[in-house]
Lab assay of single mutants.
Amino acid sequence: NCLEGLIFVITGVLESIERDEAKSLIERYGGKVTGNVSKKTNYLVMGRDSGQSKSDKAAALGTKIIDEDGLLNLI
């Protein structure tokens, strides 16, 4: 459970895995996936064609922004 207690938001199109697979992977390792960035969000996983508003909010809140490889490296 290397992601225990961590909260993730996924945005954009992921290249190597589907969004549902990424969500399942995060949950399997103890993390939680939500739909919107908040002060409780630990990581924003940004894929291709992701919206600017979520990354702006993450930056404003100090949320770590990672890509798909960054997510896989956490596991």
Rank of each mutant, 00 (worst) to 15 (best):
G31A: 02
T34P: 00
L25D: 03
K39M: 10
N36S: 14
Y29G: 05
Q52K: 14
S55T: 15
S16P: 07
E68R: 09
A60F: 09
D67M: 02
T34H: 15
V13G: 11
T34D: 15
I65L: 06
L3Q: 03
A59V: 12
N73R: 12
G47S: 06
I26K: 00
N73G: 08
G31R: 02
L3D: 04
V13P: 13
A59R: 14
K64N: 08
R28Q: 13
T11S: 14
L3W: 01
L44R: 02
L72H: 05
S24W: 07
L14A: 05
I10T: 04
V37K: 04
L6R: 07
T11D: 15
I17A: 08
R48K: 14
G30R: 01
L61D: 09
N36D: 11
D69P: 10
L74N: 00
G62W: 03
K23M: 10
V45S: 01
S50I: 05
T11R: 10
I10N: 09
G35M: 10
S50N: 09
V13W: 11
K57Y: 11
S38Q: 04
L25A: 04
K57W: 08
E15L: 06
T11F: 05
G12S: 02
G62E: 04
A58K: 06
N73E: 13
S38W: 00
R48T: 09
S24E: 13
L44P: 01
R48E: 04
A22S: 02
A22L: 15
E18K: 14
K64M: 09
L14Y: 03
C2R: 10
K40Q: 12
Y29H: 14
C2F: 14
K57E: 12
L25S: 02
M46I: 11
E68Y: 14
A59N: 09
E68G: 09
D56C: 11
Y43F: 02
S55Y: 15
R19C: 06
K64I: 06
S53T: 12
A59E: 11
S55N: 10
R28D: 06
L72K: 09
L61I: 06
N36H: 11
T34R: 11
L14I: 04
G5E: 03
T63Y: 10
V45H: 01
E15M: 09
I17M: 15
T63W: 00
G5Q: 02
D69E: 13
T63R: 01
E4H: 09
T34E: 15
G31E: 00
D56N: 12
N36P: 01
D56M: 10
V45Y: 14
T11G: 10
A58D: 07
K40F: 07
C2K: 10
K57Q: 11
C2W: 05
R48W: 02
L71D: 02
Q52N: 13
E68T: 14
S55C: 15
R28L: 08
G35I: 14
E68F: 13
Q52D: 10
I10V: 13
G51K: 14
D56W: 08
L61W: 12
E21T: 09
K39Y: 07
L6F: 05
M46H: 04
G51H: 15
G5T: 00
E4V: 03
I26Y: 00
L14P: 06
T41G: 00
K64T: 11
D69C: 09
K64A: 08
D20S: 13
L6Q: 12
E4A: 06
K23F: 03
E68H: 13
D67H: 09
E4C: 01
I65Y: 01
E15H: 09
Q52E: 10
D69M: 10
R48L: 05
G70A: 08
S24F: 09
E27I: 06
D20C: 09
I65E: 02
L25M: 12
V37A: 03
D20V: 08
K54N: 13
N73V: 02
G31S: 01
E15Q: 12
G31F: 01
E15P: 15
V9E: 05
L25I: 07
Q52R: 14
T34G: 09
Y29T: 02
I75L: 13
V13T: 15
S38I: 03
K39L: 09
L71H: 03
T41F: 00
N36T: 14
L61K: 09
S55G: 11
L71C: 01
I75P: 04
F8H: 02
E18V: 03
I7N: 15
K23I: 15
E27Q: 07
A22V: 13
D49I: 06
L74K: 03
K39H: 14
V37Y: 04
L25T: 05
G12L: 01
Y29N: 10
N1V: 05
N73Q: 14
L3A: 00
A60D: 10
K23L: 07
S16L: 09
Y29S: 08
Q52Y: 13
T63V: 15
G51F: 11
V33D: 02
G35D: 15
M46E: 07
L14H: 05
I65H: 01
E68N: 04
T11L: 05
K39P: 14
N73C: 06
A60S: 11
E68S: 09
A60H: 08
T63G: 04
A22R: 03
N73P: 01
Y29K: 06
T41M: 05
G62A: 05
N1F: 02
A60Y: 08
I26F: 01
V37E: 02
T41Y: 05
V9I: 01
L3G: 00
Y29P: 02
K57P: 07
T63S: 04
E21A: 11
S38H: 04
K64S: 10
L72Q: 06
A22T: 06
K40S: 12
L74V: 03
G35R: 15
E68I: 15
L14R: 04
A22Q: 04
G51P: 14
V9G: 07
T34I: 09
R28P: 02
K64Y: 02
Y29D: 03
G31L: 00
